[in-house]
Design a binder for these strands. Structure first.
Lengths: 222, 222, 222, 222
DNA sequence: CTGTAATCGAGACGGTACGTCGGGTCTTCAA
DNA sequence: TTGAAGACCCGACGTACCGTCTCGATTACAG
């Protein structure tokens, strides 16, 4: 994640300060908490990080790129501890994501970079690689674990089966992330345990009722 | 929606140019398409509208308010024609929403306004009233229609039942809107008919499997 | 001198702050005294003048143009009081000019703008019109006065005579200004009364010995 | 002149590249011609010379010192060939000096260095020793030669006479150099043969009319 | 022939100032 | 009173040089 600008031949010259990247990203998050996206200035970030503005610009091309990286690091702390059942795993990750979205730096910046990405293809790609693809691992992990537990049927072999599985993963990712983000940031309603229970019930009900995967019913866990 | 700033005594003096509001909102949308949120400058909007900056600031207090107004009416064109079954109605509205989100002015501005709202309570309230509450009518309408068709059970009477029904509406609204927005703007994947089918199956499966409402199984329509 | 940038139709809009020009030029001279030419920053000048940087740039195109005007105003305080004889008049103006060149803002900036003008024709022209042509009035005045006193012969009539007179004025101007500047800034020697006496003697001796004007000897005054 | 920074013990280690000094000074002059003083950047000079910035800073302490060295040798090519009379000698050296000042590198850098010296005593001393004292030899030489020819009276013996002679040399130096520089760089007028004749007449007239030296009239040469 | 030591290129570093741009306000004149 | 025009203050932008520094890689002379 750090040092996104890679040189082809980093042979000669003074090497870049290794710690600067992390200091800058941390300063970016701190500034986001205090100021929000629109008041965030790169000069201020540089000052907080104890770094010259030039150093910042040497590594990131602008506000957007910087914030994407700063936020991506934030999302990396999401994980999926094994809570014994698919239902508990889903409820767990939904709650953790909601907690993350309560933090001001995440609220302020996630939507802002998405907004900018609508007319900046490079930024769009960066979001996909640094955030979307990165967090889909959680869905994959939960799915795999549920299959091992017998809560979900194993993958259908063959190319067609793999494609269907991929589609399901994408669908579930957008449904979970989208619903939580929308409730939190658009509807401005709290993601409380009751909502988490309802949402998870809806999701798992839809899954086991046979959404994309064949409709083979599976005994729910716990 | 236009001209939110109202005077107490619009008696005397030169009357406001009636067409200016519409010219400004149109110019705002045009500028949003070309430049995106962050590059949008009010000076530029004023110039496009053939209007002085003074005139613009007399009617809107800033960028956010202007863009909210310029965009809110876009969403008003969403409706829910009766396609004969709950499934068809859901697929229809999902597709229409996705088509709307393909328009650049909608992409660029929706998320931008949401982003700004994370540290602007007034803007957050404006979004709730002008967008969220306004569009929930679609969910309510579809639910009612499905109940009349017998695809969904009637509301449980009593306070508790009404509360449960309200929770379900909110949940479904966030799931539908959130998933479509997330897939379109965050994952940057197309909302094609296949995805719509899969998503609708997941949602209806979850609903009929008994999510929030009592688990009474209902024969799906069509 | 002030408000060098002239608009063709200054009809509409808010008029420029009349006092700003003078505040800026005064601030420029003050900053020159403290910092010298090379450390002089326009942001600092603007701050001293209680003016925004944009205001400054709206009126002057850069450091050079600004300093030329600031210095030209300085040189305007040179005058030529009637001391009774050509010799006394010359000694007087030489001394006053030398005193002026002792002031740090004059020392630091005069040569700097001349240096810049060597590769900036616009600046060169500005120096000619704002400084050179402006100060030649002193030579003209002294000449006229001496002619009235009978210390110098009257102008030869005719085109040829006028041209010769102009050449003489230019020559004298460059000799006086050049010698004083060179002694002060290049040789770094003081312009004391002794030097003034010697220099004036040399100059008047050359003039009356018949330099450009016809060699008619004239009884010196005093 | 080159390599002004001298090490106390130049014993061991890799020796400095001998050609670098000359390459740097040549690059400096070239850059001066193209860019002028203020746009001249040491990084650019280093690049032109095919040398690292480090190397440049190891040998000169900054822009001023570098340019003084780069330019000082330009003035060394001035000399005073014997043209048979004092008048011809003076006219000759004035013309040669004017020709020198037509070269862009001389124009741009001479005044710039003088400007910087107004608030840099070390630089001021450097100019005195490297330029002023160095070029006064021309005046001394011309004076001596004219005395041998009988065009000027021999030095008055004694301390007082030596002091008076010194003052005269300084005066003449400043008058000649100052007038030529001022006409060329400030008034931006050409030093053509006509001006040279007029100026020389004025100077010699003043000298022989008895400026500082006793007023003994001397038959002018040629 | 092996240190030791100063040099070289390259380029990152903390700074300072640049000149420009946009935001939102204010001031003038004309309608 | 509104509108067009445009000047105003403010603050951030992204760039350019400054002069310093840290590298790895050369080159000499010394032991």
């Amino acid at each position: 994640m750090p040092a996104p600008t890679r040189r082809s031949t980093p042979r000669t010259g003074r090497p870049r300060d290794a710690g600067a990247d992390r200091a800058i990203l941390a300063a970016t998050r701190a500034a986001l908490v205090e100021l929000g996206w629109s008041k965030l200035s790169l000069g201020d970030v540089a000052a907080r990080a104890g770094v010259a503005k030039t150093t910042l610009y040497r590594r990131w091309s602008g506000k957007n790129e910087l914030v994407v990286d700063a936020v991506a690091e934030l999302l990396d702390e999401l994980d999926l501890p094994d809570r014994g059942s698919l239902r508990a795993d889903v409820e767990g990750v939904v709650l953790r994501f909601a907690r993350l979205l309560e933090r001001p730096e995440a609220r302020a910046s996630l939507m802002a970079v998405v907004a900018e990405s609508t007319h900046d293809p490079a930024l769009r790609d960066r979001i996909r690689s640094a955030i979307v693809d990165r967090q889909k691992r959680l869905v994959l992990l939960g799915r795999e674990r549920a299959q091992r537990r017998g809560e979900l049927p194993p993958d259908t072999p063959g190319l067609e089966g793999a494609a269907a599985a991929g589609r399901t993963v994408d669908l579930i990712f957008d449904v979970i992330a989208g619903a939580v983000v929308h409730r939190t940031l658009v509807s401005s309603e709290p993601v409380d345990p009751g909502w988490v229970r309802d949402f998870t019930a809806l999701l798992l009900g839809g899954l086991t009722a046979g959404a994309v995967s064949p409709p083979r019913p599976v005994p729910p866990g716990t």
